[in-house]
């Protein structure tokens, strides 16, 4: 294999070291070592086989089966939850619609009630106003009557006072008559 090489190789450290009784060129073809390797290989394979078939493979198989079961259950549970959510949504929608109808009814009722109250109050207020107006008119009429009366009295008094101040003796009856006739005139 190795023929003359450059100096670089020659002075590289180390010389190939071969174990005592080493193989010819290919260690694979040294049949002295086959027994050893075959023996230990069989030991190894038996060990691996028992590790795998007794412990590892049943365990992994169980874990995988369990996981498959868990996943199936979870999917079922998820389906269930989804169905429940849909039901809840439907119920919610229904409640919402009911509530809306109710609210509309309450609004209508309240409006009607308020309207009734309002009408009643208006009517009452109207009646009170009418009563007050009538009362006021009566008072005005009374005041007017009183005023006319007072005017007559004042007129008589004034007439008497004028006559007296002119130096005459006032005849009350004549003054009254005169004033009354004038007032009427």
């Amino acid at each position: 294999m190795a023929t003359a090489q450059g100096d670089g190789l020659a002075d590289a450290t180390g010389v190939a070291e071969h174990a005592a009784g080493s193989a010819p060129g290919m260690p694979q073809l040294n049949f002295d070592h086959w027994g050893n390797q075959i023996f230990w290989l069989i030991v190894t394979l038996v060990a691996i086989y028992f590790i795998l078939s007794r412990v590892a493979l049943p365990r992994i198989s169980a874990v995988l089966a369990e996981r498959a079961g868990t996943i199936t259950n979870d999917i079922a549970a998820a389906e269930d939850l989804k169905r429940k959510a849909q039901e809840a949504e439907a119920a919610y929608e229904k409640a919402l619609a009911d509530a809306r109808v109710e609210a509309n009814k309450i609004v209508a009722d309240t409006r009607a009630e308020i309207q009734a109250d309002l009408d009643k109050a208006t009517a009452k207020a109207d009646a009170e106003i009418a009563a007050k107006a009538a009362e006021g008119e009566k008072a005005i009429a009374e005041i007017r009557a009183n005023a006319l009366e007072n005017i007559e009295v004042v007129a008589k008094d004034t007439a008497e006072a004028v006559i007296t101040s002119l130096g005459f003796t006032a005849d009350a009856k004549a003054v009254d008559a005169a004033v009354t006739s004038r007032m009427k005139g």
Binding site: A2, A4, L9, G14, A16, S22, P27, N30
Partner: peptide
């Protein structure tokens, strides 16, 4: 060992 130009033989890694 004596003849080698290569510092190690490529097949030495397989020696048992």
């Amino acid at each position: 060992g004596e003849e080698g130009g290569l510092v190690f033989h490529p097949m030495d890694q397989f020696i048992v």
